[in-house]
């Protein structure tokens, strides 16, 4: 068989938390928060307090929640 060996589903796989990264298109200061319904990559959310440029969602991704 030439199928890739992938193994069975990992029952212990950790649950990912979905994060949304917002950043101003000019000052590029990223702000990470948890995903909210309606978030879309490249959606414009408002104006930056510092430079009045658009704040855009640059990334949405899943990550293991950090343990403190």
């Amino acid at each position: 068989m030439s199928l890739p060996i992938m193994g069975a589903p990992d029952k212990k796989a950790k649950k990912l938390t979905v994060y949304t990264i917002e950043e101003c298109v000019k000052c590029k200061k990223p702000d990470k928060r948890e995903f909210k319904d309606g978030d879309l990559v490249h959606k414009i959310l408002g104006k930056c307090k510092d430079c009045n440029e658009n704040i855009m969602i640059s990334l949405i991704y899943g990550e293991e929640p950090k343990k403190n």
């Binding site: 068989m1 995903f35 319904d37």
Partner: peptide, 26 residues
């Protein structure tokens, strides 16, 4: 011997439904 391979895909598709429902990128 193909069962683990199918189970992995089925599991991924099952989990993908929640992602698609919330319109999150894959």
């Amino acid at each position: 011997m193909i069962i683990p391979f199918l189970m992995l895909q089925a599991d991924a598709l099952n989990k993908a439904m929640a992602t698609f429902k919330k319109n999150q990128p894959i």
